[in-house]
């Protein structure tokens, strides 16, 4: 009897864990099921390499190159902002701040991570965009530049908290040895502590990349929404997640346009999945 209880409890926990695999397979299955039919209408090469996205024209154009470029530009812009700010905050919190300051700053960063993306989107649309129009005298404030700023600030807490973990787990003896050899605090940080935490820092940046490339609400509200290859950073773009979110409500289920949006999701999934595998690989190599 007791044995039966033991076994059934173990089985319940086992099934719960298997559920995570089921969900992941379900996600992969649903986007591929929804997305592959688009390739009856357009070849994979043309889907990826044509810049013209006119899903409602007759005949429609399903080329997502401009959407991919939009996503990559906004993400790159976001990382330009979030890597120095996030890594800088992490080094400051881990190496320079006093115990008390650290205990205040760490939870604040954690709170920052919890701010809903739609509120950032609102801030970008209603405050930052009019502000940029006034400062730079540009026709629209919803563009690559403003989306990068907002997205970058959203990614700061991710890079900061994960890098901070990596930096704090560098053994104290390494710092002491460096100081004992005559290096000052700054040299110790830059030449010893940061290189020792390299794996964790790189993982945090890749995770930040994944977060930025997949973030929907900010780019939907702030990137401007024009499916074009931009010629400067003050032009609007239409990143991949924004296209899916904006157009899914208007499509008919089972239409080529519907399939094409799932097709975009496949590309988006593949990009994030590769970035996740790279971090897995880095962590695994570190463990050895």
């Amino acid at each position: 009897m007791n044995n039966f209880k033991e076994l059934s409890f173990k089985t319940v926990t086992y099934i719960a864990s298997l559920f995570t695999i089921v969900v992941l397979l379900g996600i992969i299955f649903s986007i591929f099921l929804g997305g592959t039919p688009v390739f009856q209408y357009v070849s994979l090469t043309k889907f990826l390499s044509s810049p013209s996205w006119h899903p409602t024209h007759d005949p429609p154009d399903f080329g997502i190159l401009s959407l991919i470029i939009g996503s990559l530009l906004v993400t790159a812009g976001a990382l330009v902002i979030s890597i120095p700010l996030g890594l800088g905050s992490a080094i400051y919190i881990s190496e320079i701040a006093s115990q008390r300051v650290r205990e205040i700053l760490k939870p604040i960063i954690e709170l920052l991570a919890g701010i809903p993306s739609v509120v950032y989107g609102l801030f970008g649309m209603a405050f930052l965009s009019p502000f940029l129009i006034r400062i730079f005298k540009i026709p629209t404030g919803l563009n690559i530049f403003s989306a990068s700023i907002i997205l970058g600030l959203m990614v700061v807490p991710i890079i900061s908290s994960l890098s901070e973990d990596a930096l704090s787990s560098v053994p104290k003896s390494l710092r002491e040895a460096s100081l004992a050899l005559g290096a000052n605090k700054w040299e110790t940080i830059i030449r010893i502590v940061v290189p020792a935490a390299k794996a964790g820092i790189i993982s945090s940046i890749i995770l930040g990349f994944g977060r930025a490339v997949g973030e929907t609400m900010v780019v939907l509200m702030v990137a401007g929404g024009a499916a074009q290859i931009p010629s400067n950073i003050f032009q609007p773009v239409r990143p991949m997640p924004a296209t899916i979110a904006a157009e899914m409500g208007e499509t008919v289920i089972g239409s080529p346009h519907f399939y094409a949006l799932y097709g975009i999701a496949i590309i988006l999934f593949v990009i994030t999945f590769i970035s996740i595998l790279i971090t897995e690989f880095i962590v695994m190599r570190k463990k050895r």
């Binding site: 929907t216 899916i244 979110a245």
Partner: peptide, 10 residues
């Protein structure tokens, strides 16, 4: 790490 919009499609 899966983007939230993909959860929406799922």
């Amino acid at each position: 790490g899966v983007p939230s919009i993909i959860y929406g499609l799922f």
